[in-house]
Amino acid sequence: MEKLKVALIGAGFMGGIHIARWSIVGNAEVTAVVDINEERARRLAREYNVKSFYKNYKDVLKEDKIDVVDVCTPTYTHKEIAVESMEHGKHVIVEKPIALRLKDADEMIKASERNHVKFMVAHCLRFWPEYVAAKEIVDSGELGEPRIVRAYRQSPFPDWAPWHNEIKLGGGVFIDMSIHDIDFLRWAIGEVNEVYARGGVLRRRNATAYDYVHAVLKFSNGAVGYVEGSWIMPKTFPFTTYLEIVGNMGILKVDNHTTSSVKVFTEEKAFDYTFVYKDAYYEELNLFTRSIIEDAQPPISGLEARKTLEVVLAAVKSIMENKPVKLPLKGDIL
C-alpha cells in the first residue's frame, strides 16, 4: 500500500513534535513542510529528510499528491488553513484548540462534511497514558459515580510563541492549555452545564491574554470540578499536571512528576521524565491515519472539539462578566 502523503503546516513547537511521530507512523509520511518563516520550514524538512518545503501553504494545497494536511500553526490561523485544505479535498488534522470562535469551528465542521474528508482535532490527552488509565478506571465503575474532580496544568509563559500574548490570537491560558483538562473531563466525566471562572492577566506584561485562570465547573450528572491553568510560573518551574477524580466509591489521582521513571541532575539542569508504553502523539496521528485508510470516524470529531471549545469560552466569558455562565453558549466571546 502506498503511504499517505502529509503536508505539515507550521514548523514551530507542535510541528516539531508531530513530524517526529509522523516519521514512525507506518502508513503515512510527511512530504512537505510549510512555514511562513521559510528558513524554519527548510530546517525542519532537512532534519527529517523531507524534500519539499514551502513558505505559503496555498502552494502545497495545489499538489494532488498530498492526502493529509496537519495544521500546527497558531490558533487564529486554524480555520482558514483547515477549511481551504478541505476544499482541496485534503483530510485535515488540526492542533487544539480547534479555533477561537464557535462559528469558526462550525465552518470547519461543515467544510469537512461538504468535502467528504476526515477531520480531527488533536486533543492529545485522550491518548496520554495516565489519562487513558484514569478514563478506563472511571469507565470500569471502580470509583462509582463521579462526584468531584480537580485538574491543574502549570507552566512558565510559552515565550517561544509571541502570539500567545494576544487573547485574540491565542486565547490565553485557559483556551490554549486548560482546554486539555476540559476536553479530558468532558470525555471522562460528562458534559459541563455551568462554569464560573476567575483570572486575568496577572503577571505577563503587555499582554491581553489571560495568564492565570481557575474555573469551577458543574457537570450535568451532578459532579463538580475545579480546573486551574497557570502561565505565571517562574522560569525554573517544571511543567506540571495534576488530576484527581473522586467518585462515590473511591478516588484516583495522578501527576506528572511523582510518576517519573527517570530523574536527572547535572550542574546545568534538573529534569524528570515519565516513560510510557505508548506515545500519545504517535497514537493520535496513527489512529487518524487509520481512520482515513479504513474510511472510519476519526477518534475525535470536530463536533467534540467544538463542545470542548464552548466550555473554555464560557470560562473566559465568566471572567469578563464576573458571573456564572450556563451552557450552551450564545454568541462568540473573542
Binding site: E145, R147, I148, V216, K218, N221, A223, V224, N248, P324
Partner: peptide, 23 residues
C-alpha cells in the same frame, strides 16, 4: 462563589463536596 454537587456519601444530611472561589 461556591458550588456543591451530589454527595460522595449519599446517606449524609450535610454536604461532603464543596468548591469555593474567592476574591
Amino acid at each position: 462563589y461556591a458550588v456543591t454537587g451530589l454527595n460522595i456519601r449519599n446517606y449524609l444530611k450535610v454536604e461532603d463536596v464543596g468548591l469555593i472561589s474567592l476574591k
